Amino acid sequence: MWPRVKALYCHPVPIDHWPGEAEILERLPLRSCRRRGAAIDVIVDRGRENRSQLVFTTARGRDVVFWQSARTRKQARPDVRTPTARAQGIPELQILVDAHERYAYQFTSQQVSTLRTALPCGDYGLEINAVLVASVERKSLADLVSSLTSGKLRYQIAELAALPRAAVVIEERYSQLFTLNRIRPATVADGLAELQVRWPNVPIVFCETRSLAEEWTYRFLAAAQVWTQTEEAMLQRLSSLRIGAAGEDQVDPPRTPSTAQVREWARAAGLPVPDRGRLRPDVWDAWRAANAAKGETAPEATRKTTPQGPIRLRQ
């Protein structure tokens, strides 16, 4: 028995409550057993799976103990180094930081210059030609739950969805949603799923730690800048093609007059017409005959011939 995948929960009991006939699963010789603050480091005398730790903490007001190994601890808090390579090959990316962001990312390990300004939405943005084209909203787990339950997150994502590119980054793992004790975890999970379906163009990304969320934000905005430049060039090419095609082949469509215009023409031509309502089919036929050379058309024919005779249709 060993904590290989996740930490094992151990229920602490006083020594006098320890059962006299406890079942022993395995006996192992120890090389070291030393207390370090709120944890006890245990080293077993064998070649593999020999280092573990008993962590004493509290959960929901109760004393609990977790038995974890070096492997499970690394999975809980990945000890990784974020890359320092330039994102998308950009020598220096300028990122706008919202003036209301209290604990802003510094981007010290990336090639970034920051500028404090008031952003209409999001905490970190990218401007191209003085136009905000991408933005990232940063959330801690506590802020995520608070804004979701209050309804604020819905409005924030709706504003982000109006941008060409936007995202929400969470400084925590998705699994931590199910450890919440002051709100039903299913409520938070359902709320996030609903927002993602409602605005699929604004991804909600969980990045485990603050440093990984900062790294992801940098890479996302850099990719958005490259995409914007590529998209702008493509749109310019398409616009020039449309203009060229329109200049060669475009023909003005025939104009369709209104009933008031045909009524005025009929009166000038001496045809009896009512002051209001629909015009008779013969009036429209007369107008077509008089204006056929000008390329103007009236609405579809007002009569359809059948074996039984003409049927009058509404204009």
Results as ranks from 00 to 15, higher is better:
Ala186Pro: 09
Ala166Ser: 12
Phe178Asp: 09
Ala223Ile: 00
Trp216Val: 10
Thr179Val: 15
Glu172Pro: 04
Ile170His: 02
Ala193Tyr: 07
Leu160Asp: 00
Pro164Ile: 03
Glu159Arg: 09
Asn181Gly: 13
Glu208Trp: 03
Ile204Met: 06
Arg210Ala: 13
Leu221Asn: 05
Ile170Tyr: 00
Val168Ile: 12
Ala189His: 12
Leu163Asp: 01
Ala161Ile: 06
Gln196Arg: 14
Glu171Lys: 05
Leu160Val: 06
Gly191Phe: 02
Ser211Phe: 07
Trp199Glu: 08
Arg184Pro: 11
Ile183Val: 15
Ala161Met: 08
Ala189Ile: 08
Gln156Arg: 02
Ala222Tyr: 01
Val188Glu: 02
Ala193Asp: 13
Ser150Phe: 05
Tyr155Gly: 06
Thr217Ser: 08
Arg173His: 11
Ile157Ser: 00
Ser175Leu: 11
Ala213Glu: 03
Thr217Glu: 06
Ala162Gln: 14
Glu172Tyr: 09
Thr149Gln: 04
Thr209Arg: 01
Tyr218Gly: 03
Phe220Asp: 09
Thr209Ser: 08
Ser147Gly: 04
Gly151Ile: 08
Glu194Trp: 11
Ile157Thr: 02
Ala213Arg: 02
Ala186His: 14
Arg165Lys: 12
Val169Pro: 01
Tyr218Pro: 04
Pro203Arg: 07
Phe206Lys: 04
Leu221Ile: 11
Ala162Leu: 13
Ser211Trp: 04
Ala161Leu: 01
Arg198His: 10
Val168Lys: 00
Thr149Lys: 06
Ile157Phe: 00
Ala167Lys: 00
Ala167Asp: 08
Thr149Ser: 11
Ala189Val: 15
Leu221Ser: 01
Glu194Cys: 09
Arg210Ser: 11
Pro200Met: 10
Arg184Met: 12
Phe206Ser: 03
Ile157Tyr: 01
Phe206His: 05
Gly191His: 05
Phe220Pro: 06
Leu163His: 03
Trp199Ile: 03
Arg219Glu: 07
Glu172Ser: 15
Arg219Lys: 10
Val205Leu: 10
Glu172Met: 10
Leu212Asn: 05
Tyr174Ile: 15
Val169Glu: 00
Tyr218Thr: 07
Arg210Gly: 10
Pro203Met: 08
Leu180Thr: 11
Ser147Leu: 03
Thr149Arg: 11
Ser211Met: 12
Glu171Gln: 10
Arg182Ile: 07
Leu177Phe: 05
Tyr155Ile: 08
Glu215Thr: 09
Ala222Leu: 08
Glu159Phe: 05
Pro164Glu: 10
Tyr218Trp: 15
Phe220Gly: 08
Pro203Val: 07
Glu215Ala: 15
Ser146Gly: 12
Leu163Gln: 00
Arg154Gln: 12
Val205Asp: 03
Ile204Cys: 03
Ser211Asp: 15
Ala158Glu: 14
Cys207Met: 13
Leu195Ser: 04
Val197Tyr: 08
Leu212His: 02
Phe206Leu: 09
Glu194Val: 14
Val169Ile: 15
Leu177His: 05
Pro200Leu: 10
Gln156Tyr: 01
Ser146Asp: 15
Ile204Arg: 03
Gln196Trp: 04
Leu160Phe: 06
Ser147His: 07
Thr217Val: 09
Glu214Cys: 07
Gln156Glu: 14
Gln196Asn: 10
Glu194Arg: 13
Pro164Phe: 05
Arg173Pro: 00
Arg182Asp: 13
Thr209His: 03
Leu177Arg: 02
Glu159Ala: 13
Ala167Thr: 09
Phe206Tyr: 12
Glu215Phe: 13
Ser175Val: 14
Gln176Trp: 12
Phe178Pro: 11
Val188Trp: 03
Glu159Pro: 01
Leu177Asn: 06
Ala158Thr: 08
Pro164Cys: 07
